[in-house]
């Protein structure tokens, strides 16, 4: 329990910027005496009340459920209402607060979340009726424990955008919808009440699903353990199982699968052909020649591993398993 703790000096360096007034972003320094378990949010609100009422930020519930107060604390994605000052001061000597990334700054720590919400809306985040299975009259649907379990922790999402802020694919490519949108899409794809699974998977395959880098920065940033990167992985597997190799991303995954079945170890050149086709490979020829000059063994087929028959037997045993995903 938080017994009466000794107060510590907490230096804050808070990002300040008002685009309407121009100038450059800067960091403003404040200092407070706080108990170590005090949340950063409490510190920021005390700064507002006692030192500087011009600082602006979003906050509401202060109990990590409304999703308003996601920010960067010493460069880490955090809900500031749930981030105690003590450990940060111990590790870094101060608390640097920045607005979330990948979203334009409105003022100080408030960012414009329009692109974030738009990408979520693009997922059609509502139940699409299933004409084969209309809602039962006068009672709820039944949902088995296995069906409930399939949602995993996606219902815990509070749309705080910490994942979106942390995502390098969002940063690099506007075609990528971002982890939250995809985790929400997953939630609908596995919902037994939804009638749009195939259409959803087909659509997302051509609108950014395969741009996910699997880097898990989103899972790291998420304050509610939604694990979006793992749900995206599940979406990919569902898409491959349901719709085969229609996109470079799914062709790459399927190509990899077949590639390993052949030799047990990766045949790099063959994988390029499997993913990109002959034309794609030809287009990559220039780069290929550069690589092969330095690394000539790429032209040779690697040696098949010993025990390849065991590998192939595992393929036979598990390639058609219906219970997907893990």
């Amino acid at each position: 329990m938080f017994a009466a703790e000794k107060l510590i000096t907490v230096p804050f360096d808070v990002y300040r910027y008002d685009p309407a007034r121009g100038g450059e972003p800067r960091y403003q320094h404040y200092e407070l005496q706080l108990a170590p378990h005090t949340p950063v949010l409490t510190g920021l609100l005390r700064i507002r009340d006692e030192l500087d009422p011009t600082l602006t930020l979003r906050y509401s519930c202060r109990s990590a459920i409304c999703g308003s107060c996601a920010m960067l604390v010493n460069s880490k994605s955090r809900l500031v209402c749930r981030t105690p000052v003590g450990p940060e001061v111990a590790e870094h000597g101060r608390i640097v607060v920045d607005p979330m990334r990948n979203q334009p700054v409105v003022r100080d720590l408030v960012v414009d979340q329009t692109p974030f919400w738009d990408r979520y809306e693009q997922m059609e985040p509502h139940l699409i009726p299933d004409p084969q299975r209309p809602m039962p009259e006068g009672r709820t649907t039944l949902m088995t424990p296995a069906q409930v379990d399939r949602f995993k922790d996606t219902p815990r999402c509070i749309a705080c955008a910490a994942c979106y802020s942390a995502c390098p694919a969002v940063e690099a490519d506007p075609e990528f919808p971002g982890p939250m949108a995809l985790a929400k899409l997953y939630r609908f794809v596995v919902d037994p009440r939804d009638g749009g699974h195939q259409a959803r998977l087909r659509k997302i395959q051509t609108s950014g699903l395969w741009l996910c880098l699997r880097c898990h920065l989103c899972t790291e940033a998420c304050p509610k353990e939604v694990r979006p990167s793992e749900r995206i992985r599940d979406l990919k597997e569902l898409a491959v199982r349901a719709q085969g190799g229609t996109e470079p991303g799914s062709r790459h995954a399927i190509g990899f699968l077949k590639n390993i079945e052949e030799g047990g170890t990766l045949n790099e050149m063959k994988l390029v052909r499997q993913t990109s086709g002959l034309i794609g490979t030809a287009k990559a020829a220039g780069q290929g020649i550069r690589l092969v000059r330095k690394k000539p063994e790429m032209l040779k087929r690697p040696k098949t591993i010993e025990g390849i028959d065991e590998v192939r037997k595992l393929y036979r045993a598990l390639e058609k398993d219906e219970e997907v995903p893990l």
Binding site: R48, P53, T56, V106, R107
Partner: peptide
């Protein structure tokens, strides 16, 4: 006390 027009909590 805050004269900014964007997101003025004050």
């Amino acid at each position: 006390a805050d004269s900014a027009t964007a997101y003025n909590i004050d």
